[in-house]
Amino acid sequence: MDNFILYLREEGSRESTITTYIGIVVQFNKWYEETFGKEIDPAAVSALDIQDYKQYLLHTAKNRTNGRLSPKTINKKIEGLRTYFRFLHEKGLIATNPVEKVKPQKIQNRSDSVRWLDRNEKNYLVRVMNTVSEWKNKEHLMIRNRALVYLMLHAGLRIGEVTNLELNDIDLVKQIIYIQDGKGGKFRRVEMNKDLLIALKQWLEIRPTDKGNNVFISQKGPMTTPGIQSIFKELKAKTKLEDLTPHALRHTFCHDLAQKGVSLSLIADLAGHTDLNTTRIYIRSSEEERRGAVDKLSGER
């Protein structure tokens, strides 16, 4: 396992990805040993065993809330195993990769599972982010959290990208944010709009200078992903927006661009998508937008 970790690091995998893949392998090993009643020998694992495991994930395995695993989660587990057995094959420890021909689980109607904020929800969120009393009259918290939220809402950053953002990644003069280590280790740049620029300037003006290089910090030091998730838990309580998550704000950013007529290729560039089909989901209109469209025909002669 130590050699597998080293292999992933040499391939440029992020530490969060490495942790996920290790967990996936451990879970598979446990299933194998419980299913066959013997210690796992990677060289003896067949493609049929992997298919049986996939069926277990589809029909038996549960998530943290005791519900069925989503196709996306199952595909992540299969991809983790594919990487692990590829490592073993490349090192000459197994003859073939048993996961190589296992197909990913088909994800249908992906656009139906994507949630973004509509105009009223977004306006209400912005109002909360600009009301000091909503933050127990602690203006510095409002200013910090507003900048954090605006990075997702107005620049489409992922939660991990916000966590890893450093001071030298922000150019206030050119009004550009540089994402040094996006998903898959990809670099991209995102231009700031006026609202985001003002929010970041206000935060950087009051940000303590003795807490390292991370843009967002708490009293204990650099903010972590759980720390940001805690902020969103508080925001849910304040706004009563049940679907409010960091990724919902990223979806809102992409959806709003699509609704403004921005090309799919440009949205993909700003969001860091490598597949235009990922971006295409934002063309789906909301019920309000569809109703407004057909209402335009009402009364025509």
Rank of each mutant, 00 (worst) to 15 (best):
E33A: 13
T73F: 00
N120K: 07
G37S: 11
R119W: 06
Q27C: 10
A95M: 02
L57S: 05
P98Q: 02
N120D: 09
K101Q: 12
Q108R: 04
K38R: 10
L125F: 10
I78A: 10
L48Y: 05
I74H: 09
R64Q: 05
R68S: 13
L81S: 04
L88V: 02
D52A: 07
V25I: 07
L93H: 07
R110H: 04
Y32M: 04
Y53V: 00
A44H: 14
S70F: 15
I94A: 06
A95F: 14
R115S: 12
P98H: 01
I94W: 08
N66C: 13
I107W: 02
E33Y: 15
Q55N: 08
K101W: 08
G80V: 01
Y56M: 03
Q108G: 13
D52E: 09
S111G: 09
K62N: 14
R119C: 15
N29G: 10
K72G: 12
Y124I: 05
F85W: 03
G37H: 09
N75P: 11
T73E: 01
Q105R: 10
L58P: 07
N120G: 15
D41Q: 10
D118R: 13
V25C: 13
V99C: 07
T35G: 06
N29K: 09
F28W: 09
T96L: 05
K76S: 09
F28M: 04
Y84S: 12
L81P: 03
G92L: 12
Y53I: 00
K91T: 12
F28N: 02
L58A: 11
A43P: 08
K103F: 00
K106R: 07
D49W: 01
L48C: 14
G67K: 13
D52C: 11
R115Q: 05
R68H: 04
I78R: 02
T60L: 10
K38I: 04
V99D: 00
K76V: 01
W31C: 11
I107S: 15
K72V: 01
Y53P: 03
Q51Y: 02
V102Y: 01
T35D: 02
Y56G: 08
Y124N: 11
